[in-house]
Design a protein around this nucleic acid. Structure first.
Lengths: 341, 341
DNA sequence: GTTAGCACTCATTGAGAAAGAGTGCTAAAC
DNA sequence: GTTTAGCACTCTTTCTCAATGAGTGCTAAC
């Protein structure tokens, strides 16, 4: 289908997409000839537009209106036509301002930056520790039946969680468990550690050596469901400013979509393992609640192996040539940023 | 002004408020006589309504419409007229279903319950540790310049934070600091601990005794801005279902209000120290963004001294006789619930 | 003090007219 | 054969105007 397009067709599609992104109004043949130096008359443009409509790149909301890009039209534009613009310094500035804050604040802060710079919604998912290299664990007795587990990754990230135990474990025993576990699990990624624990637990030795068993139990609980899947959405109200959402039903749906983040989480998960940046246009977002929205997202990875996803969610009618490089840049900065942590 | 009202005036105001809460439409004299057995003609009711309008309890949006309660009208209704209804079992059931989860999940879960039962927005603020009795602190060396501080309250709640230090503090020194600090700060509330640290830091001794100084510095950082002021808002989209918010501008404003929770935090803070339940009606919410909303909130307190606030935010036109007892009940359950934790 | 009657007000609804934008087609021009 | 000018046509948007209907306030009678 791409092949069907002539050079002239492509240029006119580009013009339509760009004008529509700018104005939000259906684009007519007349205004194209006025705003772009194509040296063509409106009538000629109309003929080409009819072809483009036939091929499914644009459509008109009604007979006497201009044309609007379809999702297929946006897709072609994003894939082949858009000329990307270098992001400005605001992004760097924003990251600098976040130096020296905690992880949660950082993630939220980056979301806010993305939102501010793009004027859409900024989305950041918390990094997964799965691919990080595990450095050490420590069990600390807090009270009668509570043990604090502190996990440190080699990249210096710290996670901790409280474990309620069935019996009281004295401090010196915890010390021994700590030493034992560290000796065993050193220099693996968290994912490998989890697997190893499960494997060892099924082995015979676990059943008669009490210390060993307790060590494994504690470790398993320390590593299980580590606060993951958390997603920060910032500046969602920006999206509502867009005229295409000036509609009660849509606005409510959007609101609800942001409230139950699970939809977005699933989508972001797809990006975590993918190479480079991804753009989800319209229905590719796979949620009727977010109809008419697009998501530009990329995974970020720190040298320490922390990976997460960040991106910008906005109307499908968004300036991709600005947003895409912005997100890509943010992904790179985020990776570095986490190491500095 | 309350005194100005006759018994009949009060009954008619009550009828207006209740009918309006139910229907959302301005209430006319005719429909009052039909729906309430007042043994009065519409004309008489009209006369009384004129008096009520004069006194500022009701108003009409335009000449040929029925009457709507003013905030003053709601206030009188809430203070003196409403007959409270016992909350159902859903509330208890909801709390039971949350047994055995972590603090954050609990707070969020309670918000969801409140939202579900009231069909408005449920709001829960994280408990403050200020009034809890401090039990012990512990400093653990994590890496070269990172120390983990673990705070345990006598009620068994645990908080921890990571402190970046200027210099590397060896493990044995941290041990001594831990012992030293625990000896000094035992059996005070967190608020008192904070004060004490500040006082000691200004004393002379802090300047020449290095261990002492380091202990104080670490403690101060461990206790400063402990994750407080966190507020969970659940089911905010429920509010948008109300017909009075079927308006683009208002909806956007609401959305933004929920995004920057700070407004609500301030309001909830007022409840934390207050006795019993509070109702903020309309402008008492002190935010133009939440115009036309009311907040029913109450502080909750566990035996361990943890205090927070929870409540329901909805349109001013909400069934107070249902929501108020609901929130009161939830406050009691929440207090117990935290101890079980 | 209470009520019936009635003129009056004002939001809402729907129909119809006018305006405006843009198209598709046809026939002429290059 | 491609491009363009001209023109009728379609469809949305906006405005006005009248009809409708709910509810009031006032007055006079009970």
């Amino acid at each position: 289908m791409n092949e069907e397009l002539t050079e002239r067709g492509r240029r006119i599609l580009e013009a339509i997409v760009e004008d529509f992104i700018e104005s939000g109004e259906p684009v007519g043949s007349r205004s194209i000839t006025r705003r772009h130096k194509l040296n063509l008359s409106p009538a000629t443009v109309r003929n080409v537009m009819a072809d483009l409509e036939e091929a499914g790149f644009i459509y008109s909301p009604h007979t006497s209106a201009g044309r609007i890009p379809t999702e297929k039209g946006y897709r072609l534009y994003v894939n082949t036509l858009a000329r990307f613009q270098e992001p400005g310094v605001e992004l760097e500035r924003g990251f600098e301002r976040l130096e020296g804050t905690g992880l949660e604040e950082r993630l939220q802060g980056v979301g806010r930056i993305l939102s501010g710079v793009s004027s859409y919604a900024g989305i950041v998912s918390a990094p997964s520790f799965d691919a990080t290299v595990f450095s050490s664990i420590r069990f600390v007795r807090i009270s009668e039946r509570k043990v604090l587990a502190v996990l440190v990754s080699s990249s210096g990230m710290v996670q901790n969680r409280i474990i309620c135990t069935d019996e009281d474990i004295p401090a010196d025993k915890l010390e021994r468990i700590t030493n034992f576990v560290n000796g065993k699990l050193n220099n693996l990624t968290i994912r490998e550690v989890k697997k190893l624990i499960l494997r060892e637990m099924s082995e015979e030795k676990a059943h008669y050596d009490e210390l060993y068993f307790q060590a494994l139990t504690l470790s398993r609980r320390a590593f299980e469901n580590m606060a993951e899947g958390e997603v920060f959405i910032e500046g969602a109200s920006n999206i509502l400013e867009q005229p295409e959402f000036a509609n009660l039903e849509r606005m409510k749906r959007m609101f609800r979509a942001f409230e139950q983040k699970s939809l977005l989480v699933r989508l972001l998960e797809q990006c975590r393992t993918a190479e480079g940046m991804r753009v989800f246009i319209g229905r590719e977002v796979e949620s009727q609640m977010l109809e008419g929205c697009s998501l530009v997202a990329t995974a970020y990875t720190s040298a320490g192996g922390l990976t997460g996803v960040l991106g910008v969610l906005g109307p499908s009618r968004m300036p991709y040539s600005v947003v895409i490089p912005l997100v890509v840049r943010a992904g790179v900065l985020m990776g570095r940023f986490l190491e500095a942590g």
